[in-house]
Design a protein around this nucleic acid. Structure first.
Lengths: 115, 115
DNA sequence: CTGAAGCGCAACGGCATGGTTGCACGATGT
DNA sequence: ACATCGTGCAACCATGCCGTTGCGCTTCAG
């Protein structure tokens, strides 16, 4: 069962993942581990400021958090929100399977020859 | 391995799921099966036009498609995009596990007494 | 035929987002 | 001491999103 509270919690995570640049940052943090802003800026086609904004949005969605080493800000992934988002998708698709099964139970007796 | 093309494809799906109203519509279509716009409007706190726009955005992300019965537009869920989004999240978290394992391999030899 | 239900199209306002530029500040290396 | 690197903050612009209202069209019911 999906409770409404879970949806309200999952929506911001999906929104944070719903930008191509941000999804690239997430993937990169995932593959390469914790990185500084300058390093994250190097690969993508956007400014350092844009990367900074995206990182803050990821932090607001509990998808990343930062630490400081000297003058560098090191950002790393926070996988819990990612896992809960995956959980949400799994629940939705599970409910869809359920609904499909119910639909079959409802439809098939009406057309027993079409099988 | 996550290829960049997959990310570019998954981002719009996440963006479509990244709104609370839309996520509610998706859940509702999932639980109750195909519904008309008027029926979808009844439950939520928004106008019929808002629901219509959201449905079109879901369609653009390949998350829903519509059919027509008389004067009613019946919308139903298209689970393939949902599954591919879930797949994307799974790949990301799998890569995160990998990275964590590499990090452990790198860190643990330096502090063998801290177990 | 007439009324009502269901829906689409278009326009509008408010607000958030994605991106840029410019400037200032602490940390680092020589 | 000085240049440089890495960031933060603030302002700015363009665009898109979210939701509304108003109007008109088709379809169904009496």
């Amino acid at each position: 069962m999906v409770r409404p509270g879970e949806l309200a919690a999952a929506a911001p995570v999906f929104a944070a993942l719903g930008d191509e640049t941000r999804l690239g940052i997430v993937t990169r943090l995932c593959v390469a581990g914790p990185l500084s802003i300058a390093w994250l800026t190097a690969g993508g086609g956007v400014t350092r400021q844009a990367v900074t904004k995206h990182l803050h949005m990821l932090a607001q969605a509990s998808l990343a958090n930062r630490s400081q080493i000297g003058r560098e800000r090191i950002w790393e992934l926070e996988p819990r929100a990612l896992l809960s988002a995956r959980e949400c998708l799994s629940q939705i698709s599970a409910q869809w399977d359920e609904a499909l099964a119910r639909l079959r139970l409802f439809v098939e007796p009406l057309r027993p020859q079409d099988g």
